[in-house]
Simulated scan of single mutants.
Amino acid sequence: MSLFSFKHLIYLTFVLSLCVIALGAYTRLTEAGLGCPDWPGCYGFISVPQGSEQQLLAQQAFPDIPVEVSKAWNEMVHRYFAGSLGLLILVINIIAWRRPATPKRLPALLLVTVIFQALLGMWTVTLVLMPVVVMGHLLGGFTTASLLLLLALRIRQREIQPSLPKASLSRHSFSPPQSLQIMGLVALLVVAGQIALGGWTAANYAAVACTQLPICEVDWQQHFDVSAFEPIQPEHDSYQYGVLNYHQRVSIHVAHRIGAMVTTTVLVLLMWRLWRQSVPRRYGLGLGIALALQLCLGITNVVASLPLLVAVGHNLVGVILLLMLVATNYHLYCWRDVQRYTDKMAPEGRSHG
Rank of each mutant, 00 (worst) to 15 (best):
L138V: 13
P100R: 15
L90W: 06
R79C: 14
A202N: 11
G199H: 08
L139V: 12
A118K: 10
L110P: 09
P165S: 09
L85E: 05
A108M: 08
L129Y: 10
E75M: 10
G86E: 06
G121I: 10
A196N: 01
K166F: 03
M135Y: 01
I160T: 14
L129V: 07
E75L: 03
S179M: 05
I115H: 03
P100W: 06
E68S: 11
L88P: 12
L188W: 08
Q181L: 12
L180H: 06
M135H: 01
A187Y: 00
G184F: 08
L185C: 14
L185Q: 03
V128M: 13
R99G: 06
F116N: 10
G184P: 12
A96H: 04
P100L: 09
G141S: 14
T143W: 05
W73L: 13
A152C: 09
L111S: 14
A145H: 07
Q161D: 07
L138C: 06
T113F: 10
T201F: 01
L164T: 09
L119C: 07
M130R: 14
G184M: 06
V191M: 03
L138Y: 02
V191P: 00
K71C: 10
S173W: 10
Q194C: 01
G86C: 13
S84I: 15
V114Q: 00
A167S: 14
A118W: 01
F174S: 05
Q161H: 04
L85G: 11
S170M: 10
L149S: 08
K71I: 04
A152W: 11
L90I: 11
G86L: 12
L150I: 11
I89A: 07
L106Y: 02
Q157C: 02
W123E: 04
V77E: 08
K71V: 06
A96Y: 04
L169I: 15
A196P: 02
Q194H: 09
Y80I: 15
T144D: 12
R158V: 00
V112P: 01
M130T: 11
L109E: 07
I160S: 09
R98E: 05
S173R: 10
Q117I: 15
V128K: 15
